[in-house]
């Protein structure tokens, strides 16, 4: 039992924090050069990390930065699926290649196995919704069903689709978390097979992506606490700092409690990422449920303690709070994961 970061991870954290402090514009190549993408993959996959705690360190730092970097969607999630399909991810780690996974469908909500997009041989037809990072990707990994009905775990395969493939349409838009997503429609699109039965690999990759999302959220929560702490000591009303009012400071302590609980959950989720599927998913579900609840408390309370300024687009707090709130809409929300936790616990 030990809660200290290894020396290597400590160094990764320090160098990434320093780099992000001065970063602006497109920093994808810079991150790759720093080894950040490589840290997400194991040595045998061509990287030099790949453990849950490596992901936690990287994404917590990204979450602290006031930037939108789609590292989950353009590197981690598709990268893990490429590896699962036996492809090398050298280009991805080096920053030259970017991919995105087109998986979600309107009727699926957060159900991983709900896939109605059809595969006839290697030709795909269907509609994918809110595909984050689709426009920036060089090609897409697309899930489609070759057999069974919409909610079966069996019968889901993955294919690679080139961005200029005839019949592929991408309609992009800004999203509230920052960055962009797209609606992707496929009409008899020719694709290259990646994994024939992808159910368990999707679950595994989504577990890692969920962990990354939570770590990112944790970084943003830390910033919200620090900003609110600072604000309470500097903002004056009634002739004194508002941090002298217990009605505010006691709420801040409850926020700190929620953040510390969230931090523990990132540790638990990271520590069980390589466990058997049920243990892994039980911890991921527990963690994501707690994040949904903690995240809502942190973002709502920090906005409230700031007052109107916390709602302005110009002031960073609002942007962080928005990211935390929107994080609940990715990879399953509070209620989804509570139900999942109950089901997994009863099974």
């Amino acid at each position: 039992m030990n809660f200290e970061l290894t020396e290597e991870r400590q160094m990764l954290q320090d160098s990434l924090r320093r780099y992000l402090a001065g970063a602006e514009g497109d920093i994808w190549a810079g991150l790759a050069e720093l080894g950040v993408i490589g840290a997400l993959f194991s040595e045998e996959q061509g990287g030099f990390g790949g453990a849950g705690f490596d992901m936690a360190v990287v994404f917590e730092e990204l979450g602290r930065a006031d930037l939108t970097i789609p590292l989950i969607d353009n590197a981690l999630l598709p990268g893990l699926l490429m590896v699962a399909g036996g492809q090398d991810v050298e280009g991805l780690i080096g920053g030259a290649q970017r991919l995105a996974l087109a998986h979600g469908e309107t009727a699926a909500r957060y159900d991983l196995n709900w896939v109605e997009t059809r595969a006839e041989g290697n030709r795909l037809t269907g509609e994918k919704t809110v595909v984050v990072g689709a426009e920036d990707a060089d090609s897409l990994i697309v899930s489609a069903r070759h057999s069974g009905v919409a909610c079966d775990e069996q019968g889901i395969g993955l294919w690679l689709v080139a961005k200029d493939a005839p019949g592929l349409q991408i309609r992009g838009y800004d999203i509230a978390q920052g960055g962009r997503a797209a609606e992707v429609s496929l009409t008899d699109v020719e694709a290259k097979p990646l994994i024939a039965e992808a159910g368990s690999e999707l679950a595994k990759a989504f577990a890692a992506a969920t962990l990354a999302e939570m770590a990112q959220c944790l970084g943003a929560m830390d910033i919200c606490v620090a900003m609110t702490q600072e604000y309470l000591t500097t903002r004056k009303q009634f002739g004194r700092p508002i941090g002298t009012f217990q009605a505010l400071t006691h709420r801040l302590v409850d926020v700190v409690v929620a953040v510390e609980q969230a931090r523990s959950m990132v540790i638990l989720a990271a520590g069980h990422l390589e466990a058997d599927a049920k243990t892994r998913d039980l911890h991921i579900a527990a963690a994501k449920n707690l994040f949904g609840r903690s995240g809502r408390l942190v973002s709502e309370e920090c906005i409230q303690m700031h007052g109107g300024i916390g709602m302005t687009e110009e002031y960073a707090l609002g942007r962080y709070a928005k990211r935390i709130t929107m994080s609940d809409h990715r990879f399953g929300d509070t209620d989804h994961h509570l139900e999942r936790f109950i089901d997994l616990g009863a099974a």
Partner: peptide, 15 residues
């Protein structure tokens, strides 16, 4: 389930 989840986190927070 919610209190069980809170307790999972608490156990680690405590340690």
């Amino acid at each position: 389930a919610q209190v069980e989840i809170d307790l999972m986190a608490m156990s680690t927070t405590n340690l």
